[in-house]
Design a protein around this nucleic acid. Structure first.
Lengths: 194, 194
DNA sequence: GTCTATAGGATGATAGAC
DNA sequence: GTCTATCATCCTATAGAC
């Protein structure tokens, strides 16, 4: 096989499913961008849905190295690591002129209801995202009784809802407002120094 | 014209765009559900995108009477009105066996990037939703300096992110966790009695 | 593993009679 | 305004040579 044909197909599909959505992105677009023929695609994947599964697995593999390691390397304070992750999402909004959409969130709404295989992998992506945030929150000195898992769910909620509104408004304002309130809330949970 | 042909087409499109998404719902499905012929649809709408615009206008017209008036009638306390609205979304998750998606949020991610006409109307729907929440928040006795508009944005963020995660997980847990944190935060903003 | 070619079906939209 | 009929295009997926 030519080096990385499968990987090139998956990379092209990731890009196109993100840009146009799963339904609107055609197999013809994927093979064109990957520089392969449709015969090659159907050699590696039995259907478009199988390609979607591979895309979601690739997102999960990329989650820690691409989404979490860079901001975690920049910041050492646990709580600031959380906000550094969110700052990167803000940067994605800016660099796309507010056209950024969370690829997992978009697929969650588009294909979650119609493909159970995809839905399970989307849920796994969300769980892994929450897990990385929860790990940081466990390092933070929060008031006793705070549940890091539940709080990480809240952080993901705020990211998804903020990105969605900012894309709709073509403005950073909704994202920034949401993050500011999240920060105020998290700061209220910091255990008082003693 | 037969009574309400246009309205029946819009109602069918609302339902189908919500169930399957804009791209996956076909014109043939819409006319079948509306019980009309494609000639009628193209008499009222010049394209599928024009139908989408009509759907988004219909959502905005329905927003106050369908989403806000029932919960606001049940609750008189301003802050509890906000949570009553959110409780209705929780009910939608339950009654759909966690298949509920916010129709505006779904369309925001799917068509926001490709149809500017739709994006503007989606933004208007979000703004109207925030406006109704902000009005309730203005009635609540919150600590001075609290911005009801910014806080309403946060409430919408939490609803959208919570619904998305609960649908992906097929469980109320992420939504409930998100609302619980939102409640804790809002309660911390209640002005102390004096 | 990759290629060309195309099957088989669904799609959005149109034509023109009534 | 509504009807039937259909165009033209697009789509996913397959067949079979190399």
């Amino acid at each position: 096989m030519a080096t990385g044909t499968r990987e090139r197909i998956v990379a092209a599909a990731m890009q196109l499913f993100w840009e146009r959505g799963y339904g609107e992105a055609g197999i013809a677009d994927v093979v064109a961008r990957a520089g392969v023929r449709s015969g090659s695609l159907y050699h590696f994947f039995e259907s478009k849905e199988s390609l979607l599964v591979a895309v979601l697995e690739a997102y999960q593999s990329a989650l820690i190295p691409h989404i979490f390691e860079p901001p975690f390397r920049r910041e050492r304070e646990p709580l600031e690591r959380v906000f550094a992750v969110l700052a990167d999402y803000r940067e994605r909004l800016l660099t796309t002129d507010f056209r950024y959409r969370c690829p997992i969130g978009s697929l969650a709404l588009e294909v979650g209801p119609v493909s159970e295989r995809a839905r399970v992998l989307i849920d796994a992506n969300f769980a892994a995202w929450r897990g990385a945030i929860a790990a940081a929150l466990r390092e933070a000195a929060l008031v006793p009784g705070t549940d890091p898992e539940s709080l990480a769910t809240f952080v993901l909620t705020v990211m998804e809802g903020g990105v969605m509104q900012s894309a709709a408004q073509r403005s950073a304002a909704p994202f920034d407002a949401s993050i500011a309130h999240l920060r105020a809330y998290l700061m209220s949970l910091v255990a008082p120094a003693r």
